[in-house]
Structures are given as structure tokens and as C-alpha cells.
Design a protein around this nucleic acid. Sequence first.
DNA 1: GCCAACGTTGGC
DNA 2: GCCAACGTTGGC
Length: 159
Amino acid sequence: MACNHWLMKTEPNTYSIDDLSNAKKQTTCWEGVRNYQARNLLRDEIKKGDRVLFYHSACKEPAVVGLAIVEKEGYPDTFAFDPKSKYYDEKSKPDQPTWFMVDIKLEKKFDHPVTLSELRDQASLKEMILLQKGSRLSVQPVKKTEFDKIVKLAAKKSN
DNA sequence: GCCAACGTTGGC
DNA sequence: GCCAACGTTGGC
């Protein structure tokens, strides 16, 4: 089965692509998603081997900064069980977890990130969820054509 | 820092 | 079930 494509947002102040690059095995769990629509994707849709656009949000220059691959499919977000975690949710129980996460592994950090404004310049990317007004979904599906286009834009900038 | 848009909460 | 109030996201 063909892999699917996703975009995951992170605030670089909290967790950046350099953090992922420096992580053990360049792999991390993607904890802390507390939105039901995104949860459903993490729990049900995102599969091992799927490809991910790694996006920096709420920063000086919002951009797709690299690529990652799903290493481990949806499993309970254990941070929700830890009262000391900022992601603690008393309503989520280990025997019936509310929140889920996946593990992702760095595939490539772009030499030249593809900025939000560059994405907006592309007619072929007009339908991306990321670019829709008011869209704030932190884990979102991306079409293969969109994914490939963005990879191509990043490669082009390296020339 | 501002503020529009969105999601959640909770009173009724 | 409605909807106002509130908290959060995230571009600018």
C-alpha cells in the first residue's frame, strides 16, 4: 500500500528540527497533541513509513523545514497520565486513553526551508489545509502532489 | 503585542 | 441543544 503524507506543526521554541536532528536515533515521540481531529489522525490514519512535512509555526519565519518518517504508529500519549507534565489530562486513563502519539524519525533537514509565503505563491498548493484561512490543525493530511511539490521547491532553492 | 479564527466549556 | 465566554493558535 502506498504511504500517506502528513504535515506536523511545531513551535521551534518548543521543539525544532534541530532538536530532532540531535535526538537519539534522530527519532522522537510526537506527544502533546490535544485536539480531537488531530488525535483521530494519530490514532487511526497515520501508518509506519508515512512521510511527514516538518513545519515550524509561531516563529519569525514559518516554514516547512524538513522531512520525517513515521517510525511507530499511534499509541497512547503517556504524558497525559503524568500530573507533572504540562500535557497532563486527568480525564485520560491508561486503560482508556484519550490522547495518542506517534514516533517520527528525521529523514532530511532542508538546506533551505520552504517558507509559508513561498507556499502561498504556488497555485498548485492553494488547497493545502495549512494555507486555508483560520486553519490551525497541528497534524494534517497532505496530498502526494503537494508533498512532492514542496520537496521539489526545497531542492530548487539549493541550486 | 495584536487580533482573527477556532475549539471547548458550561450555564440555561 | 444553544450560545456566550473563555483559552489557544499562529500569522503578522
